[in-house]
Each structure stands twice: as structure tokens, then as C-alpha cells.
Amino acid sequence: MPDREPVSLMPPPADLLDAASLFLDFDGTLVELADHPDGVVVDSRLTDLLCALGEKLEGRLALVSGRPAEDLAAMLGPDAPSVVGSHGMEFRWSDGRRERAERPVGLVESLAALRAFAEARPGVVLEDKPLGAAVHYRMNPEHEADAIALGERLAAAHGLYLQHGKMMVEVRSPGGDKGSAIRTLMADPRFAPGRPVFLGDDVTDEPGFSAVALLGGAGILVGPGRATDARYRIDDVSGVLGWLAAALGVPA
């Protein structure tokens, strides 16, 4: 997280997506946050919008999420664009290629500890991922400090990366983030011609904002203003969907 005071950001200009390579976070950006990761529903409005964006951008569209790549692609259906999951550690390219880091050995013990933690605390939800394990305490925020402390101990003991997020903490495979994911995507010949634009809402998206800025593009923060490397801001998920629809010239 940038060590700066919050700044006032303007809405993104209408022509920002012209000749862009567009990268989108999922939870909190394209869909509202849910108490449980499985509580999110993807409707036809979103899938139709993503298909139209992919056509407009000639395939230069990818989702960059903390969710497992295969799970997110399954939610989006057969026409899903390229998907990067697990905070930049899994690639599911739209042409069928698959790339994934090795699952860390230390996740076995970490998952068991986080499961015991969640089972002992009503309202705390465990999420088991291919390259990480997370506990969500949105329904019981009084457990935040204990969840973070446990995550810190597990990360230190097993050489894992401690990933903070909105009302969650995760221990995961080290070595990548959303910034490295965007750099990898932009090195691909299909994405390279575009100017990178990334939309995200969480502190997990900050490496992505930094990456697109260094590559000559722009980040768009979704939600309240904060210290960030994003250049623009949109209020909420509804605003994101409306802005993307406007870029296509279709009703929001």
C-alpha cells in the first residue's frame, strides 16, 4: 500500500478504453462483495458485457483476480476471456494455455490451522485455493486481529506470502501478484499493442495499479478514495458496469 495521503481522483475519461488492453478485478469491481465467496452470482448482463468488450478490444481483455482461475472461468461460462487467478499465480489463457505455480508444501499445515480457526468461530469462512488458503471474517469482524495474527505466524513458519484484503487474510504461494500478472499479460503479443488499463477495488490491486502506471497506462480505483497508484476512480460496481457499457455505446 503506498505510504501517501489519500488523494482526490477524477472519473476516468470516456475514451480511456480506446486502443486499450483492459484488465479487470472481479469481486468488488465487477460484482458486489458477498459474505461467502460462493455467494456471488454472475448474470447474463455481465457475461454479455465482457463478450462485447473482448470484441471491441480485439481480445485484449483479461480478468485478474484472487480467486482460483478455473473457478472464475467456470462462473463466466464458455466465452470467458483470459483469466489470471490466485493473485497472479495461475494463468488460464483464452486460447487454452494453462500455467500455474507449484502448490507450496506448507499450505497443508496452514490450511488445517485456518480450518480449525474458522470452525471454532461462527461467521468466519474458510476458502481453500490451489495456491493459498484464506479466512473471511466479513460476517464476524471481531475476529480480524486474531485472523491476521494467525496468518502472520503461518506465513513466517512455512515461507508463505501473507495477503491482506477486504475483511480477509490469506497465506499463499510467494513470487507473484497482480502487478507481475499484468506485466506477463502485456508481454504477450495479443496484449502488447494496447495501453494497459486496470480496474480494482482492494489493496490486493495496488501492485496492478503500479504496474500499469509504469507501463504508460492507468489504474482505476473502485470505491472510496485512498492512497493509491491509481489515476482515476469510480464510486462502485454499478458505476463500473455503467462506464464499461458507455465505452461500448450500449445501455447501462
Rank of each mutant, 00 (worst) to 15 (best):
D128Y: 06
G176T: 05
A187T: 11
P251D: 13
G151R: 03
S94E: 15
T47K: 13
G176M: 00
G85F: 09
R98M: 09
D201P: 00
E32R: 08
P174G: 04
R153D: 09
H36E: 14
D229N: 07
G219Q: 11
N140C: 06
G208C: 08
G225I: 11
G88R: 02
E90N: 10
H87C: 02
E99A: 14
D71P: 00
G225T: 12
I182W: 02
R4T: 14
A19T: 09
F91K: 02
L61W: 02
P12G: 14
V240N: 08
P224S: 04
R45P: 00
H164M: 03
V197Y: 07
H36K: 13
A247Y: 04
P68T: 02
L63K: 04
L160V: 08
D236E: 10
F209Y: 05
I234L: 15
V108L: 13
V169T: 10
G165P: 04
A120V: 09
E99S: 14
P78L: 11
D177R: 03
L33F: 11
S44D: 10
G59R: 01
E90I: 05
R115T: 09
P13L: 06
G54P: 01
F117T: 15
G77I: 08
A252W: 02
P104G: 15
P251W: 08
A192D: 11
V169W: 02
G175A: 14
L72S: 01
V222A: 13
A120G: 12
V237F: 07
V171F: 01
T47C: 07
L126R: 15
P2E: 12
D79C: 04
L16I: 11
G175Q: 11
G106E: 08
D38P: 00
L9W: 07
V31A: 09
G132C: 08
E152W: 01
E109F: 04
D43T: 13
L53C: 13
A230G: 12
D43V: 14
V135D: 02
F198I: 06
D205K: 03
F209Q: 01
A145M: 14
L107D: 11
N140P: 00
V105N: 07
G59V: 08
K56R: 15
M89E: 11
R97H: 13
E90A: 09
A118I: 02
V125G: 10
L111F: 07
R121T: 07
D146E: 15
L215P: 01
A156Q: 14
E206M: 13
A113T: 01
P224G: 10
G217M: 11
P81A: 09
L9N: 12
V42K: 04
V240L: 08
L248K: 12
V169E: 01
R115L: 12
G39S: 14
W243H: 06
L107V: 01
C51S: 15
D95H: 14
A192N: 10
A14V: 12
G59C: 02
K56Q: 14
A113F: 13
A147P: 00
D71R: 05
S110R: 05
R60V: 07
L33W: 02
D128R: 13
D188W: 13
D43G: 15
D43C: 12
G151Y: 05
G106Q: 15
S21G: 13
A113D: 08
G106A: 05
K178R: 04
A213T: 02
